[in-house]
Design a protein around this nucleic acid. Structure first.
Lengths: 312, 312
DNA sequence: ACAAAACTATAAGATAAACTTATTTAATTT
DNA sequence: AAATTAAATAAGTTTATCTTATAGTTTTGT
């Protein structure tokens, strides 16, 4: 049994197809076939059931794949140990970011980070929270930025900052005249919302319903579309909520529609999340350091009420 | 990086000597030299400091060895998974047993176990509790039988049975006339004891002192030497305590000197212990099953007071 | 149902990796 | 300083791994 063979098994298990897996890991298909067979022979069991297409994992196969993931993870950790010792911060690092955080946060820290750690080859991908969790588990990404808490017990969360929500209220709206708004002022049925799955906790307000309506309808608002939300709002579709960092980019005219909450302001917790396997921790720590440092300058609220991303 | 290379590193780390390590793992010394060098080159660090003799681990080396142990353990687990699936109970299994349990317990279960699981190649070694803990950590043994609790957080304990202590009281002794004895009757200063490190808990009696005296003096009583203890006792050196199972082998004459404790009788907890890495769990479970089944027949006490092996 | 397409397995030869024996070099003892 | 002990290097052999080419399967589409 070699680590290479385990890699091969994982690739086949992932793509359920020898040919595709072979392409992805840059070997020929016979290499995969033979090495997987060799391992199967050594262990004395079939890992894959090739009689059906797409290929299936046998029962033992499932367990073997699970364990193979552990072994491969643990073996990746050795280079980590070496890097850490050398104080080397570098190599490829894949970071996932949810759409509603991407456009505001990325410009704030990216230049800073790549200047400070030029040897890190950052690859950033926009993805949903659920896709992130899966990608972290599979090792497809090394870390991600999302609204937390997620309550996934194999995902660790390192909070980056607490970002207050700010009301965006059109002139026609009855709340426009108020200087500060309160959670109780919000009417879920006329609130325009973007963030997938982000809900106030029960005791504040549950706005998932309106959220879902928007998403399942014509709109499926994605990255950068807070602009859309603002336009809809200005056209009398109702008020909306924006994360604080996003409000800093608004035109002067739009700024006039902003209304802060009475303190403690509802806020979302934004965290750097990673898998419990703790691979590439050095980079994760530096990333956390840079981002929270940069954001600390932009957000200086004290009185904040954290909001959970999921209804419960 | 291959699993083989990690094995080689572990061997060298263990014997601090390439030549010896090479012998132990049945390869030639140049093979070790070259493969270790190759891994060092791949990682870009020296794992061993060869400038001194015996060889030292570098700082990174220490960490690498630690991680290598994890990886090797996890990779051994794959065959385990396969065996489990097949319902196969077999292969080499190394079991450590402490000297004071060995002679009485081993004959009780050994034949039974090897008949039931003939494919298991049991290798039994007598060793002290501390040696066991180290051997379990290093993977030199797969499981062990010892008095518990040990309070080692990487060692799991599966209690096998609770074995009462029985007083062995020479005719000359003042307690000889009593039918049953009580913990308070015992005088630590005149109690002959054998078991290394086994002490009544504070609230019963702390007999470690007398124990240590015996050990550090001329005697270092080892396996099978309860006989010696009994002879010493019969010659007026004082009373002693014997574990219940041992008393079953005594001559009729010696049986007359036995005095049970008033219930609840003090007892020692004897457990099958293994490392948290949970390798060869199938065999461990079967072993536990067989031993506790066999002993259940021999010990049928209800009222027992468990005694801790260590003073605290 | 039959041909085409899509996959996987096998064969054979090329490449590369790992291992052994023999020898050299370096460090430690005496 | 010589003898001893242990690790590194060199050279050649064996073994393992990979690729190209090809033969079998299973699935898909008409």
């Amino acid at each position: 049994m070699t680590i290479t063979q385990l890699h091969y098994v994982l690739a086949v298990a992932e793509y359920k197809n020898f040919t595709k897996a072979a392409e992805k890991i840059f070997v020929t298909q016979p290499t995969l076939s033979m090495q997987v067979q060799k391992l199967e022979e050594e262990l004395g069991v079939k890992i894959f059931d090739r009689s059906k297409k797409p290929i299936l994992l046998t029962q033992v196969g499932e367990n073997i794949v699970q364990q193979a993931k552990n072994i491969v993870n643990e073996s990746n950790r050795i280079q980590d140990i070496v890097d850490q010792q050398k104080g080397f911060i570098g190599g490829e690092f894949k970071l996932g970011i949810i759409p509603t955080i991407m456009p505001t946060l990325l410009p704030m820290f990216l230049r800073n980070f790549i200047n400070k750690y030029p040897k890190v080859n950052l690859k950033i991908e926009e993805m949903t929270t659920q896709a992130m969790i899966n990608a972290l588990r599979d090792g497809h990404i090394d870390a991600a930025i999302a609204a937390t808490p997620l309550d996934e017990d194999d995902i660790f969360e390192k909070p980056l900052y607490y970002e207050p929500f700010v009301g965006f209220i059109p002139q026609s709206h009855k709340l426009f005249k108020k200087k500060k708004i309160m959670p109780d002022d919000l009417d879920p049925d006329e609130l325009l919302l973007l963030e997938d799955g982000h809900c106030f906790k029960d005791n504040v307000l549950n706005i998932c319903k309106s959220n879902k309506l928007l998403q399942n309808d014509h709109f499926n608002l994605e990255s950068g579309s807070f602009e859309t939300l603002i336009k809809l709002s200005n056209e009398g579709m109702g008020m909306t909520l924006l994360p604080y960092l996003h409000t800093m980019d608004l035109s002067e005219k739009n700024q006039e529609n902003l209304r802060m909450f009475e303190e403690p302001s509802p806020a979302r917790e934004v965290s750097l999340i990673h898998h419990k396997s703790e691979l590439k921790m050095q980079i994760i720590e530096k990333l956390h350091e840079v981002i929270s440092g940069v954001v600390r300058g932009a957000i200086a609220f004290q009185n904040i009420k954290i909001i959970s991303p999921k209804p419960n």
